[in-house]
């Protein structure tokens, strides 16, 4: 028995290494766990995208579950996910706020005109300050914020129909209860 153990050890070590390396293949290194999840969302007040003279304040959203979608007209992946938000917006399940990140106002407005505007409000984060407070490092990013203003979920990169349904909408419905 002990003799067999000696020969089995390299095999066991090998399998352990394979397991770790194999798992590594399926991890997404770009998905960095955000320290902001389960913490209060940063409160911000910036100019409204549509009406520059008005301010959008995130405090207005307190007391309801809402989605914050960070996007920009220069971001290709935002274009991919946008139809999904347009569709979600049509369903009227949850208010979606757009955070237009480091963009030109004209480009952004044109983009919304062309592709549809699912947002109940659009905040214009021209210098990326709000994005920085949210720890945004790759647009698009999507946050689910609960009635108490706590960030409950963060999605980095474009959502897919599946991830929007199973992660975002499912969580929203749960939080709305």
């Amino acid at each position: 028995m002990v003799r067999y153990l000696k020969y089995l050890t390299p095999l066991v070590v090998f399998l352990v290494v394979v397991w770790f390396l194999g798992r590594g293949l399926y991890l997404n290194p770009r998905e960095v766990p955000s320290p902001l999840v389960d913490k209060p969302a940063p409160v911000f007040s910036v100019a409204d995208l549509h009406r520059p003279e008005r301010q959008f304040s995130s405090e207005k959203m307190m007391g309801q579950v809402w989605i914050l979608n960070v996007w920009a007209s220069w971001c290709r992946a935002c274009r991919d996910e946008h139809p999904l938000f347009v569709e979600l917006g049509r369903k009227n399940i949850v208010p979606i706020v757009g955070l237009n990140y480091k963009d030109q106002r004209g480009d952004a407005l044109e983009w919304l005109r062309a592709l549809g505007d699912p947002y109940v409000a659009s905040a214009y984060d021209v210098d990326g300050r709000v994005g920085m407070d949210f720890g945004v490092y790759g647009v698009p990013e999507t946050y689910v914020i609960d009635k108490q203003g706590i960030i409950r979920y963060k999605h980095i990169g474009p959502v897919t129909a599946k991830s929007l349904e199973t992660k975002v909408v499912a969580l929203v419905k749960e939080l709305q209860q």
């Binding site: 997404n28 770009r30 971001c75 290709r76 992946a77 991919d80 790759g138 647009v139 698009p140 474009p158």
Partner: peptide, 8 residues
């Protein structure tokens, strides 16, 4: 994801 990366 790849697209997002390319975009960035």
């Amino acid at each position: 994801m790849k697209r997002a990366l390319a975009c960035l």
